[in-house]
Design a protein around this nucleic acid. Structure first.
Lengths: 152, 152
DNA sequence: GCGTCATAGTTGACACGTCAATCAGGAGGA
DNA sequence: TCCTCCTGATTGACGTGTCAACTATGACGC
């Protein structure tokens, strides 16, 4: 007979999952209205801007941002249509694609950084005490470790 | 000059938001394969099953689950097509609609409860120490309070 | 009754995410 | 070479979520 969560644990679960979802949504709306980018756009642009020569193999990009390849492919299609990135053939592996940050993409990302950091400060950091912030980091680490056990 | 988060705070932010998103996704996949319901389906069915006579005004349901009315309307349309709920005209307000849990919906929800609770236990509760679980509750409360200030 | 405004709910367009299927190209062995 | 298997990436179908526009009805003041 499997153990089931008790009433109090259930309340924490509901509160936690609903609040984090709301936080994600709110941050997305904020980013959208401040900068015209979605959460996904920002994630991709951030990873690209940190890569050498602003250029990454598609599958490696998927690993960097932690997305499935199909999701990334769809998203890159939308971003390419808006001129934020380009896709080029990979010279060393004809199957592969390289994703390149465009000038427009770099400029957009640069302009978006400050407003986004400000939003993180306002919606997340300012809501928590230093102790709570540290605890949030530990909780995230524990959850992540539990979801993706390193032994596998 | 607005305060911006420092490096450490940013790391906590990224870890926190990505992990909670992954948790949400994982729970959705688990619920889907265990019971054929999505996260949204379960939320709606739970609210309906707790309502008197398994019947709620649409806008009240939106408040209960914390969704925008448009989102709820779309979701109810999909659930109605699958026979999980019905929509009936409201007798006291001709504009309104009442959402009713169908027998199919009730049975499906009932069958889904245990697997879902088990998943909550396994993916969330079991990942955290009692101290961390309590901290998660406090963090959620602080974030929620900050997002929706009661004075407004 | 009649304007005016607010409220209940739906709709359409479009962005986002998942899944399964598909296609093309490398890698290795008989 | 040819066959088989694996991998990189895209596609199509469909469920989900947001926003803005829209319909229809109630509520209030005159």
């Amino acid at each position: 007979m499997p153990k089931l969560p008790n009433r109090e644990q259930l309340l924490v679960w509901r509160d936690f999952i609903e609040t984090t979802e709301a936080l994600h949504t709110r941050m997305g709306a904020r980013l959208q209205s401040d900068t015209g980018l979605s959460n996904g756009d920002y994630t991709v642009l951030l990873a690209l801007s940190e890569a050498p020569h602003n250029r990454v193999r598609s599958s490696e990009l998927a690993t960097l941002v932690g997305w499935e390849r199909s999701r990334l492919s769809h998203h890159l299609g939308r971003m390419e249509k808006r001129g934020l990135i380009r896709r080029e053939h990979c010279t060393t592996d004809s199957r592969g694609a390289e994703v390149v940050l465009s000038d427009t993409g770099a400029a957009t990302f640069h302009a978006a950084t400050r407003p986004h950091l400000r939003a993180i400060r306002e919606l997340f950091v300012d809501a928590l005490t230093p102790t709570q912030l540290a605890a949030a980091g530990e909780i995230a680490a524990a959850l992540r470790h539990h979801l993706n056990p390193p032994d596998a």
